[in-house]
C-alpha cells in the first residue's frame, strides 16, 4: 500500500491467456507500474509485448491472473469507473450520429437531453467537428473519427485516461495535429493519462515519463525514464531540441535491444514451425 495513493497502481501483475494447445501464454509477467495523479505516462515496447494488456487490466476489462490493481488506493473491482478508455480501433457506434456518439456517456449517466446536447456541441466545437454533429461516423475521415472519440472519452470528465495507440492509424501530419491538440486539452486538466504507443517519438514528446516494456511473451518492465522537458511544449519545436535527443537516444538504445530480441524470437519460432 502506498503512502500517497497513486491514480493507477499495478503490483506484481501477471496475465496469462489459455491457448488452443492448452498451454498458458504469458503475455506480461510481474509488472509493477505506479502512476501518480495528474501525470502523463507513456508505455512503449515492441509490437506484441502486451502493452494493451496493461491498459485492459487498469480499465478492469481484463482482471490480472496474478497481482493487484489499485485505483486511487482502492483495489479495483469490476470496471474502473474513474477511467475513460480510448481504443486503437474505431469504437464509435456506426448507427448513431456524431453528436449522439459524443454524448453517449452523458446519456448513460442520465444527463437531461438539452444539457447533453449543449455539452456535446461545445465538445464538438472544441475538437473541430462543429459542422459534423448530424453526420454518421462512416462519413468522417479517420482523423475526424479520432477527434470524435477524444470528445467521447473526455466529455464524461474522467480522472484517468487510458489511451491505446489512439493515433497509430493516422497519417503523420494528422497525427502530429492530434498529438498537439491532446496536449492542449490535457494541460491544466489534472487528469492522469496512460498512453500506450510503439512510437518512441510520440511517447517522449507527450509524456512526463516513458515506461519501456521488454519483448513479449513474458514482457516485463525494462525501466522507467523521466522526461523533464519543460511544459507547455510545442511538439513541432520540441523534437529538435538537444534535451529531447538525449532522452531519445537513451531510451532508444534499450528499446532497440528489446526490438532485436523480439525479432530473434520470432525468427526462431518461424524456424521451429
Amino acid at each position: 500500500m502506498p503512502e500517497q495513493p497513486y491514480a493507477v497502481q499495478l503490483s506484481g501483475m501477471t496475465k496469462r491467456f489459455p491457448t488452443a494447445t492448452g498451454e498458458a501464454y504469458t503475455a506480461v509477467r510481474d509488472i509493477d507500474l505506479a502512476v501518480a495523479p495528474g501525470r502523463f505516462v507513456s508505455v512503449v515496447g515492441p509490437t506484441g509485448c502486451g502493452k494493451s494488456t496493461l491498459l485492459n487490466a487498469a480499465a478492469g476489462l481484463m482482471p490480472p491472473s496474478e497481482g493487484t490493481v489499485h485505483v486511487y488506493g482502492e483495489p479495483l473491482q469490476g470496471l474502473n469507473r474513474r477511467a475513460s478508455y480510448m481504443f486503437q480501433q474505431d469504437a464509435l457506434l456506426p448507427w448513431r450520429s456524431v453528436l449522439d456518439n459524443v454524448t453517449l456517456g452523458l446519456r448513460i449517466r442520465k444527463v437531461p437531453a438539452d444539457e447533453r446536447a449543449e455539452q456535446g456541441r461545445a465538445w464538438l466545437e472544441r475538437v473541430g467537428l462543429g459542422a459534423f454533429a448530424a453526420a454518421y461516423p462512416h462519413q468522417l475521415s479517420g482523423g475526424m473519427r479520432k477527434r470524435a472519440a477524444v470528445a467521447q472519452t473526455w466529455i464524461v470528465d474522467p480522472d484517468i485516461l487510458l489511451m491505446d495507440e489512439p493515433f497509430s492509424a493516422l497519417d503523420v501530419q494528422t497525427r502530429q495535429l492530434m498529438e498537439n491538440e491532446l496536449l492542449t486539452l490535457w494541460t491544466g486538466s489534472e487528469k492522469t493519462v496512460i498512453f500506450v504507443t510503439h512510437d518512441l517519438d510520440e511517447a517522449i514528446s507527450l509524456s512526463d515519463e516513458v515506461v519501456l516494456l521488454s519483448a513479449g511473451p513474458d514482457s516485463e518492465v525494462v525501466g522507467g525514464y523521466p522526461v523533464d522537458l519543460p511544459r507547455p511544449r510545442d511538439l513541432m519545436d520540441i523534437r529538435n531540441s538537444p534535451e529531447f535527443n538525449d532522452i531519445y537516444r537513451r531510451i532508444w538504445s534499450d528499446l532497440r535491444n528489446e526490438v532485436m530480441k523480439s525479432y530473434e524470437r520470432r525468427a526462431r519460432t518461424l524456424q521451429a514451425g
Binding site: L61, R81, A83, Y85, Q89, A91, G105, I108, R109, Q152
Partner: peptide
C-alpha cells in the same frame, strides 16, 4: 457485435 463497441460502451458506464 464488435468487441470494441461493447467494451467502449461499458467503459462509458453502461449497465
Amino acid at each position: 457485435v464488435s468487441r470494441v463497441l461493447v467494451d467502449n460502451t461499458r467503459m462509458l458506464g453502461a449497465s
